[in-house]
Design a protein around this nucleic acid. Structure first.
Lengths: 335, 335
DNA sequence: TTGAAAGCGCTAACAA
DNA sequence: TTGTTAGCGCTTTCAA
């Protein structure tokens, strides 16, 4: 690894001072002779010189880098969010550092700290909620945006969707469509606001519709937990029109095949609906009714808030709720 | 934004020199009194001090950061790759900067340069191929790994799959299964090695099987281009058993519904196969035959190569081919 | 066991 | 139009 050229090297080779080179680098040509400018340009090209952003950042106290911490980069929510976030920031000239917490609070904390050490200018994260004290402190010093699992925290921004309302709405519609039973499949919701909210929404709907809620908890990656849930669905469906409503697309994905394999007619005997809009929802037959989360809008909003704040503009909305919408499809007999 | 505490602040508050604090930070406790150590620890906690990684990096000439440039973070290939890459690097203590080139060569170049300016210690990228000269130069100074669209470049590493062989294999199997026509749907392949290789593989199979190739070029996001392709498929399928083979999962996704809407019986009249393994391949009925690209292995390999190189270990394999495998499913009448 | 000081590559205030 | 120099926050050599 040959050492990279520095501004000193350029200055020396061009026979000027580092100041002049620095001026050149920052586009302050107005006070510089044509000749000097050309000379410097030539040397830079020749040396393949690239200014050291670390040195610049150290001096300027600005890194033009923003950090994002998600639970898992391959979760559809995160994919959509990160893409929109990255685009918005990229357009404003910021770099993006990405890391995965795997939902682990300690790891999340470490990641935040190491982002801070790297002097990211802002952080967006899908937090476990266990580091709220630290985040609250941090939010005093830099823009902090909590997405998805959006806890209300002083000084921090929160971007999420109306999980409870949308969940209530879709569950309600399922009852309204004539499904006597709606079986709700969720992962362990404790400590995860999106999940508790969606569950609450479902329970709200049951209350209003005067139906007995049926909540089955599953663990992704553990087929036996799904077996149990599906056995319950099967039992219900034999007695009355039943709908399965899953708390997110990944849960539905994991049980979709065995669910269909039960053999009940969709949508007549069995309805299927899910929170999230998996990209395959329209490909299966019949297409799956779902709650469309405006993931990209959230990413964009997060990017906009951060760039605005870093530009020194006050951003008012501390809690942004981007509403989800229900998309009725054939899997519930309408659409 | 209150200024963050510096090592100076800590030293002053603890009544010791910055040298001592630096020693503490780097775990060199052996030559330090118990009392000093505790004092420093207390002050650091009190001040919420976080060492400035920029200053450290500037001094040490190491940023512990690696860059990745992909075409589009939401492409299934990139999602899988980035996740595995990020995990592997994260485990080795590296940070990851991610950016999207959108397949644009100029943008790609800018991104590389700005990564270089930020002194990333290595770069992995899905390149357009237009910056090969620059990349070749760069590869002399730092580990450069070309993934997916893997051009062979001196000093750089290339990680890809056996696109041509796998494509030939699946096309050949389609003929073997009794499909008289195999219609190949691809996006414009010019300049993109993965696409040309897959096309070549298909053509190879046609040659060997003595069949007329039928190549239809589509543009994602442009329905009319798909209409045309599907009309051709329809015409073929009316005359003889026909299979559709798409160059990647996104192309298949975009035409899957209209394809099924043509009404031909799958797999009897119409076979369906694709390169890539979309996550929904098993959810539709019948499940879709596909070429499984070991995306995660590529990400892991890229991470391993980079960490090994940065650890100073010589890494030999300059071109790594991670083989894809054909998964026969019901959409082609076997599996 | 501790500290002074040089220097990493850059910017900008001040001077010429 | 150009240059000198201090300093951003840290590590490390050398000295005490």
């Amino acid at each position: 690894m040959p050492k990279r050229a520095t501004i000193q090297d350029v200055a020396r080779a061009a026979g000027v001072s580092v100041t002049t080179v620095s001026r050149y680098l920052n586009g302050r040509y107005e006070s510089m002779s044509e000749k000097t400018r050309e000379k410097i340009a030539a040397i830079i090209a020749e040396l393949g010189y690239r200014p050291n952003a670390l040195a610049k950042g150290l001096k300027a106290q600005r890194t033009e880098t923003v950090g994002a911490i998600v639970v898992n980069m391959s979760y559809p929510f995160c994919v959509g969010f990160l893409r929109a976030f990255s685009r918005t920031l990229g357009a404003a000239g910021y770099h993006l550092m990405v890391a995965e917490s795997e939902g682990d609070a300690k790891r999340e904390r470490q990641l935040i700290e190491s982002f801070v050490a790297n002097r990211v200018e802002a952080i967006a994260l899908q937090t476990s909620g266990a580091n709220n004290d630290y985040l609250e402190e941090l939010a005093r010093e830099m823009p902090v945006v909590l997405v998805d699992r959006a806890f209300a925290l002083p000084h921090a921004y929160a971007i999420g969707t109306n999980n409870r309302d949308a969940s209530r709405e879709i569950a309600w519609q399922l009852f309204d469509l004539g499904y006597d039973r709606v079986v709700y499949l969720t992962e362990d919701e404790r400590g995860i606001p999106t999940r508790t909210d969606r569950l609450e929404g479902y329970l709200d709907a049951c209350r209003v519709a005067l139906r007995e809620p049926v909540v089955m908890r599953v663990r992704r990656g553990d087929p036996s937990s799904f077996h149990e849930a599906l056995a319950r669905v099967d039992a219900c469906a034999r007695k009355a029109r039943t709908a399965v409503y899953t708390a997110n697309g990944l849960v539905l994905m994991e049980c979709y095949r065995p669910l269909r394999a039960l053999g009940h007619k969709v949508p007549v005997q069995l309805g299927i609906a899910t929170f999230d809009q998996p990209d395959w929802a329209d490909l299966v037959d019949p297409p799956v009714t779902c709650v469309r989360q405006p993931v990209e809008e959230m990413g964009e909003a997060a990017g906009r808030i951060i760039t605005a704040r870093l530009r020194g503009e006050g951003v008012t909305a501390e809690v942004l709720v981007v509403p989800s919408t229900v998309a009725m499809r054939g899997s519930t007999g309408r659409g």
